[in-house]
Design a protein around this nucleic acid. Structure first.
Ligand SMILES: [Mn+2]
Ligand SMILES: [Mn+2]
Ligand SMILES: [Zn+2]
Ligand SMILES: [Zn+2]
Lengths: 128, 128
DNA sequence: GAAGGGAATGATAATCATTATCGTTATCAT
DNA sequence: ATGATAACGATAATGATTATCATTCCCTTC
């Protein structure tokens, strides 16, 4: 089990109290603002440790990794390339088909990431 | 339309003649080995231009971007976390369900990436 | 409850993919 | 040929993440 140090507990509490997808820098800044400053290296290590322990989930974006609470049902993401909004969605059938495709190739699945990109409803309406 | 310079043509030919997923460095090295050295910055720009023109496809992995031929039907990827093998697969139903999920939220879809991670058949059999 | 070992922390340097800069070169139209 | 414009290439800069290493924190043992 992970050792839940003060710093890791702060990181976990922060993320669990929100519904956002945080990058390391945002976490460090938020903790600092809350008077619980944690070194940036410790934030990176803490996020990785908490994810390895199953206490956090993450999505890998092109430039950076973002973390979120792990106490929600599995879901995938839809990201607005214009405003950055991240919406979540679930399609059980997609999950089933993924497993089938993997099994078909003798692939022992350990994880997956489905991310869709586009313009959110709000951005689609605005402007051109 | 993209201007197909010597360099870009070399990049395109190299990738089109293969079935691999190349990163920028591999492309530069291969071209160099073939006596058609192209500056690394030009490789990066060329890959981006060719993709924008629809002449190449790409997948964004955690650490780097990899490019492949665009003259194949759309497909998603299954990556072996042990040997790096990248297998391709297609599930039309998954595509349809993605569109449905997007439409449901008023999302104007422009692209998506579904990547599954695990151990390939070969690696699953070997070792523990 | 002092001592020692191992893990965690934090400041900072290092890494690595990608992008920016900028002088040079190729291309194309006047 | 002249000039405009885009592409090239060498190299510097950027930015996220990881590595280093001295210091601090926890446990376990005596
Ligand atoms: Mn999420
Ligand atoms: Mn492919
Ligand atoms: Zn938006
Ligand atoms: Zn494998």
């Amino acid at each position: 089990m992970v050792k839940l140090t003060q710093q890791r507990q702060s990181i976990l509490d922060l993320i669990n109290a929100s519904n956002r997808h945080w990058d390391a820098d945002e976490v460090a800044r938020a903790l600092s603002d809350a008077g619980q400053a944690v070194g940036i290296a410790t934030v990176y290590r803490g996020l990785a440790a908490l994810e390895a322990a199953g206490l956090l989930d993450s999505i890998q974006l092109a430039d950076k990794k973002r973390y979120e609470r792990a106490d929600k049902a599995h879901h995938d993401h839809m990201i607005c390339t214009e405003c950055g909004l991240i919406e979540e969605f679930t399609r059980e059938t997609i999950e089933v088909l993924q497993l089938a495709a993997a099994k078909e190739r003798g692939f022992e699945l350990s994880g997956h990431q489905l991310t869709m990109f586009g313009r959110c409803k709000k951005c689609s309406l605005e402007k051109v």
